[in-house]
């Protein structure tokens, strides 16, 4: 595993439901863009991401190249404040990223 992917997480509990917001730093190259010399920039995007809460996968996402650069993602699950949860991501170059966050 080479360079790791940076993930930012914010999670807040309200009435037993945790709202999680993620921001992943990633170029999400679609493989269609060309650089200034007319060379195609090779495809490089996130493929999968998942969130684990108390040993259960509460959310899992598969991405294609059509997700915008530096992906933003919001999702929700049943949980409570003070608990820890984990987010992992992997891209087409098999680089991975991992972040632990505490629900506010």
């Amino acid at each position: 595993m080479s360079k790791s992917i940076k993930i930012k997480v914010k999670a807040r509990e309200k009435n037993g439901i945790v709202q999680a917001k993620l921001l992943v730093k990633h170029p999400m190259e679609s493989g269609l863009r060309k650089d200034k010399n007319g060379e195609t920039i090779p495809i490089h995007h996130l493929t999968q991401l998942y969130a684990e809460y108390q040993g259960n996968t509460v959310f899992q996402a598969d991405f294609g190249p059509g997700v915008a650069k530096d992906p933003f993602l919001a999702f929700a699950f049943k949980g409570k404040s003070g608990d820890e949860f984990l987010v992992k991501a992997v891209d087409t170059k098999q680089q991975t990223g991992e972040v632990k966050a505490v629900v506010k």
Binding site: F59, Q60, F77, K78, G79
Partner: peptide
């Protein structure tokens, strides 16, 4: 994108 939900997710 394809987004999968667990039993406790909204």
């Amino acid at each position: 994108a394809s987004l999968n939900f667990g039993e406790t997710s909204i």
